[in-house]
């Protein structure tokens, strides 16, 4: 009896925490469907009185949100593609080739992870300016595609792949590229999905770098557009909420679809002891 009561209380407590974590999303969605002004009613509403899609229509027809959505998508896909290729190649080399200086090189990379990205921000900005890559997708993709974390993730995974597979292929006369392409990549599929997911979500959610590199309005990504929209439309709560919904929903969908791989990545990264 006492146990049962305790169990109910425990579940109620958990439910309360879950309500707190989910509530802001709930309110965001509801407010985005309210007619202008209703979200500033007092007392606040937990549910729209009348539903309207006007803010979404407004965002896409008048405020160019479709364009920003496309920018975010293209950029995130681009970064993901390049980073998969570049990091899996390097991870493969670190896991399966024996060469001089491998251990110190890898250790050096790992310890460089502590350097905060803000240190390189200004010189990279000037460099991109000289290269004429400001206000271009490549200005965002190039500096972010090689990631030490990504190399680490792939290497950890590939170390678990038996060398005998590769040896057998070599005896059959396969070139290194063929081995990489035909054997390693298919084997590494789970970790590649994990890395892709991390990279995609990281790029979709990234703010500081696109803010600096993409100053032309037609190149804005959703987070940058949202923050600049806030400057002009602070007053329009419902509109801002609709913009937030559009920004958040794609990552949520991707995450829900590929949850398993995301959790795996956290495990690999987490037990790096």
């Amino acid at each position: 009896m006492k146990n049962k009561l305790w169990s109910i209380l425990f579940h109620l407590g958990m439910l309360l925490v879950a309500v707190i974590t989910v509530f802001p999303f709930w309110w965001m969605l509801c407010a985005s469907l309210m007619p202008s002004g209703e979200a500033s009613d007092f007392p606040p509403r937990f549910f729209p009185e009348t539903f309207t899609a006007e803010h979404y229509i407004n965002l896409f027809s008048r405020l160019n949100l479709g364009r920003y959505f496309l920018n975010s998508l293209l950029l995130a896909l681009g970064v993901t593609l390049f980073s998969l290729l570049v990091n899996s190649m390097a991870g493969f080399a670190f896991a399966k080739f024996r060469f001089r200086g491998r251990t110190p090189l890898f250790a050096g990379l790992i310890s460089a992870m502590i350097i905060p990205g803000q240190v390189t921000m200004l010189p990279v900005f000037l460099l991109l300016n000289k290269m004429g890559l400001l206000n271009s997708y490549f200005g965002v993709i190039l500096p972010t595609m090689a990631s030490i974390f990504g190399i680490f993730l792939i290497r950890q995974y590939l170390q678990g792949v038996p060398d005998s597979l590769i040896e057998a292929a070599r005896i059959d006369g396969a070139g290194e590229w063929l081995i990489y392409w035909k054997i390693i990549l298919p084997l590494a599929k789970p970790v590649l999905v994990t890395l892709a997911l991390f990279t995609f979500m990281g790029s979709w959610n990234d703010f500081l770098w696109p803010l600096i590199v993409l100053t032309r309005e037609d190149l804005y990504t959703l987070p940058v557009a949202l923050s600049s929209l806030l400057g002009e439309h602070v007053q329009d709560v419902e509109l801002m909420m609709a913009g937030s919904v559009v920004t958040v929903v794609p990552v949520l969908v991707v995450f829900l679809a590929l949850q398993k791989y995301y959790l795996q990545g956290i495990m690999i990264g987490g037990v790096k002891e």
Binding site: V22, P44, L230, M241
Partner: peptide, 26 residues
């Protein structure tokens, strides 16, 4: 899943949402 949801969402978007949740009057 419920506890983890905020982690994956866009920081800028949730900051915008919280800005309104924090409004002193409304």
């Amino acid at each position: 899943l419920a506890f983890f949801l905020p982690v994956v969402t866009t920081l800028v978007a949730v900051a915008v949402v919280w800005r309104y949740l924090y409004h002193p009057r409304y």
